[in-house]
Design a protein around this nucleic acid. Structure first.
Length: 699
DNA sequence: CTTCCATATATTTTT
DNA sequence: TATATGGAAG
């Protein structure tokens, strides 16, 4: 985006514009205005795991069970509240919410929320949602500041407006209140973030907020061929709730949509790799013009294996981000602590890392002491020698030593150059020694990852200095960059020569000549959960629409008859979306298997069975061998489908894929997921199984 | 307090 | 399958 704008208005003007995600722009403003809000300007930004950690801690301190109050779940409740502008006081008093929570057996969520906000303040930290929430509070409560930013941002342009939530929209209105120079671009058909609070209402209500608006309909698609646009139109037509519009391609025709059926997920991956290799050769296309899109991150693994086998270079977008690896997080936690020692989550993470004899018991005592005084752990540590009589001398010594270690970095974070200080922290903390001591391959890879962090600090510093933004790049600057960064933002060498692997969510807004959408199976895409939530299926369909419209020239859709999901193989029918995109499409292999009985032989020998329907034949160079391949299928080798959980009763005899035969002793419905207590024949004591995962079959 | 091993348990999607 | 948690031994 920045590049494109610079191409239009020139580098110089572009350099003065504020461009970024809502979160990154507001973070920048909040740093400047922190003190007005009662935060230190060095406040930390908690990522999802830190925020969940803080919430988990509060739940435990309140003596609530983390079974009933699953931190994930509570965190998402709180996040939703924040994104809808509901503060703790309102949360506690809103009858609708109170009712909801009590019915969900989590009546004390409001109290947790309140305690969490307090804890964040005490730690001088904001979570992702706070970056929005505090921003709107800042503008609401301080007219002078609001006016300043209204003048500063005389013109505002918002892209992907359909994915804004209540708070983001409120801030836009606050900023545009005076000048009304607001330009938003959005497409309701591409709204895919309802799960994190995005409100399509924002786009629908926009005309009534700004009656003087001029609407420009963008109905010509300059990216994709006619065939692809038509396919996308057919798909989205199945959504009952949408703003009707006619989307046309600027060019007619183009390649037909290709659909491929594989027996297993592994064959699906190999097929895609193979197809990419032959297409790239035939069309003389660069690998950078290919993308493989999937619903969930876990699907990338096999695809990577498939690409590696053919020596096709690739890069994976998003996923378990590099920055989420343990060793990287550990190091970053030390950095955070040096910048903001009251950062509770960072402190808890590293106080005993590497092990220095400060264990759970000590930490509990320290936390209790800090809580009793209502101060942060760090503040409590300041005069720990005088107050903590109960600690053993050795433990006290370790704690004091840790405190002094951090103190040694504190004063210098804003004056020292980031790279040097980072190295010093790595060394003096003992992290380096601990990591380097481990010479197993995993250990070496961890050292390598830390090396990557240092590379990125260096790179970040050099770019900043070269661009003339600053002479001195400090650790806090680097941390701000890193905390809002995802892998998708990371620029890598040779991007044009690599195939992109990405979730559909992360591929939003991007385009590729050749796109493969894989895993088009029920329970995968649409995801199993889509049926539980109202509107879930429609959102999945919009997601599929986004996937399909990433393709400029050629679109290939694939599905597998059998897929292994955490270690177990599972069969899913073809995705309903396939039939919606290509009317009447039905994978042949499925019919065949349903009728064939005893074919014998090893089940998965065949190549990918390619079902040709409305598709260009034989583009890949693989032989369409559906007949021979199908004949090799042995139905008994496929697992029988599980019985739907709601049809199970206590007393039923059941078969479990791993534990074998057993009897259901009891069914549990209350709270969260329905579970069954099952006594298996070959097991000494009964097991409790989550029905959603257990794949029990009634016998 | 630390380490190691066994067992449990979870899978949307992201700023 | 991959990771988190808990218990036992040192």
């Amino acid at each position: 985006m920045k590049e494109r704008i610079a191409n239009v208005v020139g580098e110089k003007v572009a350099g003065q514009l504020w461009m970024g995600t809502f979160h990154s722009i507001f973070l920048r403003i909040l740093r400047i205005e922190a003190e007005t809000l009662g935060y230190s300007p060095t406040f930390s930004v908690y990522d999802t795991s830190a925020s969940q950690g803080a919430i988990a801690r509060i739940i435990k301190e309140m003596n609530l069970s983390t079974d009933d109050y699953a931190p994930r779940r509570i965190a998402s409740r709180i996040s939703m509240a924040k994104n809808n502008l509901v503060l703790p006081s309102q949360y506690l008093n809103e009858p609708l919410i109170v009712e909801q929570d009590s019915r969900a057996k989590i009546p004390r969520t409001g109290e947790i929320y309140e305690a969490y906000q307090l804890a964040l303040r005490r730690a001088s930290a904001m979570d992702f949602d706070d970056l929005l929430l505090q921003m709107t509070l800042l503008l609401a409560h301080h007219p002078d500041i609001r006016q300043r930013y209204q003048e500063k941002f005389a013109y505002i342009l918002v892209d992907e407006y359909q994915d804004t939530n209540v708070v983001q929209n409120r801030i836009l209105n606050q900023l545009a209140e005076q000048h009304h120079n607001l330009c938003v671009v959005g497409d309701d058909a591409q709204s895919i973030y309802a799960f994190r609070g995005a409100k399509i209402q924002n786009i629908i209500k926009f005309p009534s907020t700004y009656p003087e608006l001029k609407m420009v309909k963008l109905e010509t698609n300059y990216r994709s061929t006619g065939a692809i646009v038509e396919a996308a139109n057919r798909l989205i037509a199945h959504n009952p709730n949408q703003i009707r519009k006619v989307c046309r391609a600027s060019t007619d025709g183009g390649d037909d949509i290709e659909i491929s059926t594989a027996f297993t997920d592994m064959e699906e991956a190999n097929f895609v790799a193979q197809h990419i290799q032959t297409t790239a050769l035939r069309e003389k296309a660069q690998h950078g013009q290919f993308a493989i899109l999937y619903r969930t991150n876990a699907q990338s693994r096999l695809l990577e294996t498939g690409l590696r086998a053919l020596n096709i270079p690739y890069r994976v977008y998003g996923g378990t981000s590099f920055y989420q690896r343990k060793e990287v997080q550990d190091l970053l936690a030390y950095f955070r602590l040096a910048v903001n020692p009251t950062d509770e989550q960072a402190l808890l993470r590293v106080i005993n890392l590497p092990a220095r004899g400060i264990g759970a018991t000590t930490l509990a005592a320290l936390s209790a002491g800090a809580n009793a005084r209502g101060v942060s752990l760090w503040d409590y540590l300041q005069d720990i020698e005088l107050t903590a009589g109960s600690l053993r001398a050795a433990t006290l010594g370790a704690v004091v030593q840790f405190r002094e270690l951090i103190k040694g970095f504190l004063g210098r974070v804003h004056t020292a150059e980031a790279y040097g200080l980072a190295e010093e922290i790595y060394r003096k903390s003992g992290l380096r020694e601990a990591l380097e001591l481990d010479t197993t391959p995993e250990g070496e890879s961890r050292v390598g990852n830390v090396g990557e962090v240092f590379n990125s600090i260096k790179e970040f510093s050099e770019t900043k200095v070269e661009s003339g933004e600053t002479d001195l790049v400090t650790l806090p600057m680097y941390l701000d960059e890193v905390s809002l960064l995802t892998d998708a933002d990371k620029e890598e060498e040779g991007e044009n020569e690599r195939v992109t692997l990405s979730t559909i969510h992360s591929a939003k807004g991007l385009e590729y000549d050749y796109v493969y959408v894989v895993g088009l199976e029920e329970n995968i895409f649409p995801s199993r959960r889509a049926n539980d939530e109202p509107g879930g299926l429609e959102e999945e369909r919009r997601l599929c629409y986004v996937a399909v419209t990433r393709a400029a020239k050629h679109l290939t859709l694939t599905h597998a008859l059998s897929r292994s999901t955490y270690g177990q193989s599972q069969r899913n029918p073809q995705s309903r979306f396939l039939g919606e995109i290509v009317p009447g499409y039905h994978a042949k292999g499925v019919e065949y298997m349903a009728t064939s009985s005893n074919a014998g032989g090893s089940p998965w020998r065949g190549g990918a069975a390619r079902t040709a329907q409305n598709q260009r034949l034989n583009t890949s160079g693989t032989m369409p061998r559906s007949t021979t391949a199908s004949a090799a299928i042995n139905p008994s080798a496929l697992r029988e489908p599980a019985t739907p959980p709601e049809q199970l009763l206590a007393g039923d005899s059941v078969l479990h894929p791993r534990f074998g035969r057993g009897e259901i002793l009891e069914l549990q419905q209350q709270g969260g997921d329905p579970r069954a207590i099952v006594q298996f024949i070959n097991e000494p004591k009964p097991r409790t199984l989550v029905l959603r995962y257990a794949q029990l079959r009634k016998i």
